[in-house]
Amino acid sequence: MLTGSAAIFALVMLLLLIAYRRTPAPHQSERRQERFWLYGLGLAFPLVTLAALLIYGLVLGETLLPKANENVVTVRAEARQWSWSFGYADAAGRTQCVLHIPAGRPVEVEITSLDVVHSFWAPRLAGKLDAIPGQVNVLRIEAAAPGEYHGVGAEFSGPGYSGDAFTVIAHDPASWAAFLGRAKE
């Protein structure tokens, strides 16, 4: 996307530069110029480029959508000004500002809010999805490797917005089992 954009930008700049460098051809028919500039560059060129890009985006978006998977772990994220509280389908109790997930398994996060609109965003795990009061949005995330991942609230939510962050801890199978066991106690 970046390369394509850079190429289009360079093309426009080049055409602009040449306009100043060339000597104008005096007797070119206006209709021919229209055919080149408007049918060609104005209409056909963006239509083809954009159609390709759009299809690519939709296919990619489709693969990012949650699919039925038996191995899925479900967790629940509740946003409020300015902290996140997480609950687990497989364990009782809640954790504050730390979300525990197993690594290497798809996780569905059921996101909602208790007050204003927030947005759940763990940049290295997935895109963002809004936390809206009265509504539950489901985001599929997956951590490739165990470790700590940074997350933030990503919709402006008032004076405490800048510091509205959480951590996602992805466990290997053993420590995930240990976490579930601890939570059950």
């Binding site: 602009l16 306009a19 060339r22 104008p24 206006e30 500039w37 560059l41 759009l54 985006g57 939709l58």
Partner: peptide, 26 residues
């Protein structure tokens, strides 16, 4: 998403109409 990308087409037409005008003139 389709509508949002489509909006680039009339914008493109204007941009190239302007560039073509510059080429047409002096």
């Amino acid at each position: 998403s389709a509508a949002s990308t489509l909006v680039a087409v009339p914008t493109g037409i204007q941009i190239f109409a302007w560039l073509g005008t510059l080429w047409k003139g002096w």
